[in-house]
């Protein structure tokens, strides 16, 4: 078992844990942040599978723009005086 395989398993298990957290958490903004963390961990696993093109795309779109769109939706629909 090499060090890369251990990293692979740790990243995969962390993704599943954050996935369960993202679904079961109470606040919506926490759910979105956990989704961003899953995207970032997916970038690591794409790099371990020798897919640099996919990793770059996922890093820009998955963890950057999608998170921004989610946060803007929550920001524009919050009630006055409420924190998101």
């Amino acid at each position: 078992m090499t060090i890369l395989q251990i990293v692979e398993i740790v990243v995969g298990v962390a993704m599943i844990v954050f996935g369960i957290l993202a679904i079961n958490t109470k606040k919506l903004i926490n759910s979105v942040i956990f989704l961003s963390v899953i995207s970032m961990l997916a970038v690591v696993s794409f790099m371990l599978m020798r897919a640099p093109d996919v990793a770059i795309t996922e890093a820009v779109i998955g963890s950057g723009l999608v998170t921004a769109i989610f946060v803007f939706t929550l920001y524009t629909t919050k009630k006055a005086g409420e924190k998101i």
Partner: peptide
């Protein structure tokens, strides 16, 4: 090199963001 049209376009959109 790694990259291409899809991430390049997304980087430009991120700059506007």
């Amino acid at each position: 090199a790694p990259g291409g049209g899809f991430p390049g376009g997304a980087i430009i959109a991120a700059a506007l963001l």
